[in-house]
């Protein structure tokens, strides 16, 4: 028998949420949602606008508390009261705005809030050499060869900026990495690059939770897929048990899309 919170072989999931619900006044944002993330796997949470993706992120990252249901890390019951609690458990979130200052250099952004210092007391100063070297090394592990760590982050491409945020989260001890729509603002090429970073993080043993509305981005990298619609789970698939077309169809709401297609064809025909 498999106990709740365990994978088949008896080891607990890295992160598991069970039957979570969240209400904002009379609005049901999440209704009985369950999901889990394992080390070295990518869990994709798919949903259109208003499906409950943001509420899901905010609960898992400690911004909001769930009204019902429970959350387990390494099989242990946890309750997050702030993002700090989540971070202490190794759950890091990379938001769409990436929490970076565009006019500051790569190394300053990389260590923002966690600056390495040397010497003590009033002479405590930034260890600039260490910070630059570490930023370069960590970026190299993501497959990015940083030309100059003094470069302002604003001069990086969208994909590279995403990589800085991911590398930073991993360096500061993330075991579960939540990525909030990391590809949505990017062009095709840049999006492909970010997908490669996701795989790189996975290969380093991180449990990645990839939030997206784009099944074409989720399908090639995901190990399992959870589809949300109107705050409910409408599909939960392991890799290999679902086709890309099926994901696209479910995302678009199946019959609705067909109706829309007909309507659009009608429009073009009448011209």
């Amino acid at each position: 028998m498999i106990v709740a919170g365990e994978i088949g072989n008896g080891a607990p999931h890295l992160l598991q949420v069970e039957n979570i619900s969240k209400y904002f006044g009379s609005v049901v944002a999440l209704n009985d949602v369950s999901a889990h993330a394992n080390a070295g796997e990518v869990t994709c949470i798919l949903g259109d606008n208003g499906a409950g993706k943001s509420s899901f992120i905010k609960i898992v990252s400690g911004v909001h508390e769930q009204d019902e249901g429970r959350m387990l890390v390494d099989g242990e019951d946890v309750r997050f009261h702030s993002p700090r609690d989540a971070r202490a458990r190794g759950i890091a979130t990379v938001y769409q705005d990436l929490a970076m200052c565009p006019l500051m250099s790569i190394w300053r952004n990389f260590f923002l809030g966690e600056e390495p210092t040397k010497w003590r007391g009033p002479f405590s100063r930034l260890d600039v050499a260490l910070a630059k070297r570490t930023a370069r090394e960590q970026m190299a592990q993501m497959g990015i060869d940083v030309r100059d760590p003094e470069q302002p982050v604003g001069t990086l491409s969208g994909g590279e900026r995403q990589a800085v945020a991911i590398a930073r989260a991993i360096y500061f001890g993330a075991r579960v990495l939540i990525l909030d729509e990391p590809t949505s603002a990017l062009g095709v090429k840049q999006a492909a690059i970010v997908l490669r970073y996701i795989l790189q993080a996975r290969d380093r043993g991180i449990g990645v939770i990839f939030i997206t509305h784009n099944p074409h981005h989720a399908f090639p990298v995901g190990d399992h897929f959870i589809l949300l619609n109107r705050g409910r789970v409408i599909g939960d698939y392991e890799k290999g048990t679902v086709t890309r077309d099926e994901l696209v169809r479910q995302m678009a709401g199946g019959a609705e899309l067909e109706a829309l297609t007909h309507e659009l064809e009608g429009l073009t025909a009448s011209e």
Partner: peptide, 24 residues
């Protein structure tokens, strides 16, 4: 340029919301 506080000054002016989110 050399103190931790300097990094905080830059980020407080550059993007205070981002800086706060990351723990500055």
């Amino acid at each position: 340029s050399k103190a931790r506080f300097g990094n905080w000054i830059y980020s407080a002016g550059g993007d205070p919301v981002a800086a706060r989110n990351i723990g500055v």
